[in-house]
Design a protein around this nucleic acid. Structure first.
Length: 421
RNA sequence: GCGGCUAUAGUUCAGCGGCAGAACGCCGGUUUGUGGCACCGGAUGUCGCGGGUUCGAUCCCCGCUAGCCGCCCCA
């Protein structure tokens, strides 16, 4: 095969599908702006160490899924800089927050982004090497209230509203608390201790996880190990009083606004920076990739990458997966143009274009045919592309009264061109 | 990164060691200022790429690439 193709894991988005993408993005912008979020756009590549320090050296994302290269050294004496296509956007947003000293404003920063991310994984339905995320972060100094459980609940309520407004039905919110930066190591130690005598009874994957990342044992799907897992210590029992109160306050606020949720004590997430609240919105029908979006609180992230204390909470949605879900729910119909203008002779093409210009200026969606087409062909094409056809013959051009046929009703009328709408 | 399934027309797919098939779509006609419906006719193509076996390979074998499913992980 010598013909060039989009590289593995990347793809072209074409009309009419792009219409759906635009609708998703437009809805996100509208909903987020009602919560007073502003848009941030960060570079698509960053210094590699941002992700190593921010996301976590030991995470799968950083250890094996990044697109990293050595940039050319700027001078002989200089070492080449290691750059990486961003595998997620939170680290970049927090880097920008630190770099521009946004915390000095003393206010909460509420930022959203829409853009491509890159991970080198094996492609599958709903999983691509270039994929799109819509995400948002609420971050700021503690004095601005960035640590308040109200912020967690507001973000979750916003997400529920967004999914509802978009028309995604059947989503499920799972929520958990993984504790503070102090709670977590205590729990992991307890988990290791509890796993030691029983791990040899578990599947190979879990035996490995018990060593490398005991938290991951919790979301194992292996049916034979479920009973053993259910008997392991619960994170809830290792939360300190502050973390417990925080989690209870988040749930109480969700109850107050009527957002349905399921507490899932086994929900752990893969990025190192999460503290306290973690959550996922899932949807059936996405196969193994059932997470529509995921997120959580990251109270220590800013300090991890050398910034001031700036607790925050955020999420990332898989836009590709939102689109797949919407497409599965209802086959997206191509949107039809309002009018198809059919000039009846090639000499009338300029007049047709001029008429199109007039109608487009009124905000109408117009397709222009070609006078060299036979009328039958014009009708066939028009019927596929537009709601109505405008016949532009000698009579119509000279009198300014157009012949308009509506495909839905098969009704044909004469309309003065000024009255077209 | 690991395991499995798949790759034939624009699309969805059938097929067989010996001339490349169907449906839908497309093009033309029945209808030269009237579409959809119907009928008649037509064209679909490096059978993913490379190699091997064979008189002969789209078919069998090997490699590669890509997609899908599962795992890992995540959005």
């Amino acid at each position: 095969m010598s013909t060039l193709k989009a590289v593995r894991g990347t793809r072209d988005l074409l009309p009419p599908e792009t219409e759906l993408w635009n609708r998703v993005e437009r809805t996100a912008r509208e909903v987020f702006s009602r919560y007073n979020f502003g848009e941030i756009r960060t570079p698509i590549f960053e210094d590699t160490s941002l992700f190593a320090r921010g996301v976590g050296e030991e995470t799968d994302i950083v250890s094996k899924e990044m697109y990293t290269w050595e940039d050319r050294a700027r001078a002989q004496s200089e070492k080449a800089q290691s750059l990486t296509l961003r595998p997620e956007n939170t680290a970049g947003v927090v880097r920008a927050y630190i770099e521009h000293k946004l915390g000095e404003a003393g206010l909460l920063q509420k930022l959203y982004y829409i853009g491509p991310q890159f991970r080198r994984e094996r492609p599958q339905k709903g999983r691509y090497r270039q994929f799109w995320q819509i995400g948002a972060e609420v971050i700021g100094p503690t004095s601005a209230g960035s640590e308040s459980p109200l912020r967690d609940a507001e973000v979750l309520e916003m997400l529920a509203s967004f999914l509802d407004e978009l028309g995604i039905s059947g989503w499920r919110l799972e929520i958990n608390s993984v504790g503070s930066a102090l709670d977590r190591p205590r729990y992991v130690a307890a988990l290791r201790e509890a796993l030691a005598p029983v791990k040899h009874l578990m599947c190979e994957d879990n035996q490995r996880r018990a060593e490398t990342n005991p938290l991951r044992v919790l979301d194992s799907k292996d049916p034979n190990d479920q009973e053993l897992i259910n008997n392991l210590p619960k994170i809830a029992d290792y939360l300190d009083e502050d973390s417990k109160a925080h989690f209870a306050a988040v749930l109480a606020a969700l109850d107050a606004c009527g957002v349905p949720y399921h507490v899932n004590p086994r929900l752990v997430r893969g990025l190192d920076y999460y503290t306290r609240t973690t959550f996922e919105f899932t949807h059936g029908g996405l196969g193994a990739q059932n997470a529509l979006l995921g997120g959580g609180r990251y109270d220590g992230l800013s300090e991890n990458i050398g910034g001031p204390k700036a607790p925050g909470i955020g999420f990332a949605m898989g836009e590709d997966r939102l689109i797949l879900t919407l497409q599965a729910q209802a086959e997206q119909q191509a949107t039809l143009a309002d009018y198809y203008i059919a000039p009846l002779a090639a000499e009338l093409n300029p007049a047709a274009l001029e008429l199109a210009r007039e109608l487009r200026r009124k905000g109408l969606r117009i397709e222009v045919g070609d006078g060299s087409f036979r009328l039958k062909k014009s009708f066939e094409v028009a019927n596929k592309l537009a709601k109505k056809i405008i016949l532009l013959g000698e009579d119509e051009a000279s009198t300014g009264v157009l012949t308009v046929k509506d495909f839905a009703t098969a009704e044909q009328t004469k309309v003065a061109r000024a009255e077209l709408a």
